[in-house]
């Protein structure tokens, strides 16, 4: 009797811990970033026109070092949001970027960022910088901050609005809000 009570107690304790237990597994940087990208797709609304039908996949583009993209791909595959699967595409030239919903920008130079932003400006693409200095100031929408920052990511809400993207207020609450640089080119 005492044994079975203890067992029940253990089960109770463990079930109470499930919320925190994700911490128990250690994830690598890009696995966690994949987790964020997945959730950005949930908390951002695209204009209806970008999806052909209810099963059109959500395309995550990788711009820059493809290695992180591979980890993201492995982490995110087989997941869906409202019946939409994910597709990962790799780009290394701005003009290749078509039919993309989230663009993960990683390890590129500042001038490449400027070139990229110029090309896709106004399109409904959620650009996500991988801790790129002044990514949002240069016209990017989301930028991951570095480890141990007080906020996990920055958001330039102006650019999001201009790109016809609606970002959930919950995401905005968690983000460091950034505005564009004065200089426009």
């Amino acid at each position: 009797m005492a044994q079975s009570l203890r067992k029940i107690l253990i089960i109770l304790i463990f079930s109470g811990l499930t919320y925190y237990s994700a911490n128990s597994q250690q994830f690598t940087e890009y696995e966690v970033k994949a987790g964020y990208l997945y959730n950005f797709a949930r908390f951002v609304t695209w204009p209806v026109s970008v999806f052909a039908d209810a099963t059109t996949p959500i395309v995550i583009g990788i711009y820059g070092n493809p290695r992180s993209g591979e980890i993201i791909k492995a982490t995110i595959r087989n997941n869906t949001i409202d019946g939409r699967p994910f597709v990962i595409k790799y780009y290394n030239k701005p003009n290749q970027i078509q039919q993309c919903h989230i663009l993960f920008v990683t390890e590129i130079t500042r001038s490449q960022v400027i070139e990229l932003i110029k090309e896709i400006k106004g399109k409904p693409i959620l650009t996500v910088g991988d801790n790129i200095p002044e990514f949002c100031q240069l016209g990017g929408i989301v930028n991951f901050t570095q480890q141990y920052s007080t906020k996990r990511f920055e958001i330039n809400h102006q650019v999001a609005i201009k790109s016809d993207l609606i970002i959930s207020s919950k995401l905005l609450t968690l983000a460091q809000i950034v505005v564009s640089n004065e200089v426009e080119f």
Partner: peptide, 27 residues
């Protein structure tokens, strides 16, 4: 990974910065 996705999702839903910071520290 599902657990990871859910954790981040729940934390955003609850605008729970602390959970995200804990995850960050353990990354």
């Amino acid at each position: 990974y599902q657990q990871l996705f859910d954790l981040i999702g729940q934390a955003i839903e609850a605008t729970d910065n602390v959970s995200l910071a804990l995850l960050d520290q353990n990354t």
